[in-house]
Simulated scan of single mutants.
Amino acid sequence: MTAGPDPVAPGRTTTSSASTGELFGAVTRDLSTLIRQEIELAKAEATQSARNAGRGVGMFGGAGVAVHLALIFVSLALWWALGDPVGLGWSGVIVAVLWAIVAAVLALRGRTELRRVQGLPRTADTVKKIPHALQGHEEENS
């Protein structure tokens, strides 16, 4: 029995009459579609990660600028308040050491926050599955 046009997919013939060239063409189209989809997923994930990181960094920057002026005045007030019992020179050193401690704590917290940016986890996972999918084992993980 010879196969005619495939009624489900017009323009294609059934598998029994498909030539090697047609099968290779179908595999090439499917692989091309898969690669395009992976690229789109990578773009979407990169955009989302960059947006989240940018928001976080922007908010830290804005908070730093807004608080900077208030901290200058608080520091000056503390310097002058400590200046009477200790002397202005030593009170300046005390205030500077306090700000060095605050800077160290903020730097450590900022580093922790930036480490939370995950990059492209789903894209990496699906790209690892491509070789298995090409071999017909779509559900295998590497």
Rank of each mutant, 00 (worst) to 15 (best):
R51L: 15
G64M: 02
V65W: 04
G61E: 03
L69V: 08
G56F: 01
V67W: 06
H68W: 10
G56I: 03
G56C: 01
L71C: 01
A66T: 08
G58C: 09
V57R: 10
G64K: 07
A63D: 09
H68A: 15
T47R: 13
R55C: 05
F73L: 13
H68L: 10
G62M: 04
V65L: 05
L76T: 04
G58Q: 06
L69F: 13
N52M: 09
V65A: 14
A46E: 10
T47L: 14
S75G: 12
A50R: 14
A50D: 10
E45V: 05
S75W: 00
G58K: 09
R55L: 09
V57I: 15
A50C: 06
I72D: 00
G56H: 02
F60A: 11
A63V: 06
G56P: 00
A63T: 14
S49A: 10
H68V: 08
R51P: 05
L71H: 07
G64E: 05
E45K: 01
A50F: 07
H68E: 13
S75K: 00
S49C: 03
V65F: 10
G64Q: 09
A50W: 08
L76I: 14
V67L: 09
A50G: 06
F73I: 04
V57F: 07
G54E: 02
L69Y: 15
H68C: 11
G61F: 11
G56N: 05
N52T: 12
G58W: 11
I72Y: 02
F73R: 03
M59W: 13
R51T: 15
L71G: 07
L76P: 07
V65I: 15
E45T: 03
V67K: 12
S75E: 04
S49P: 00
A63R: 11
V74I: 11
F60W: 13
A50P: 00
Q48S: 12
G62A: 12
L76N: 04
G54W: 02
L76H: 02
T47K: 13
G58H: 09
L76C: 01
S75H: 01
G64L: 00
A44Q: 09
Q48D: 15
R55M: 09
S75C: 05
E45W: 10
S75V: 00
F73M: 07
V67S: 10
A53E: 05
R55Y: 07
F60E: 14
T47W: 06
A53Y: 00
S49Y: 05
F60S: 11
S75P: 08
Q48M: 07
V57L: 12
F73T: 05
V57C: 08
T47S: 14
G62R: 03
A50K: 11
V65E: 01
H68S: 14
V57Y: 05
S49L: 03
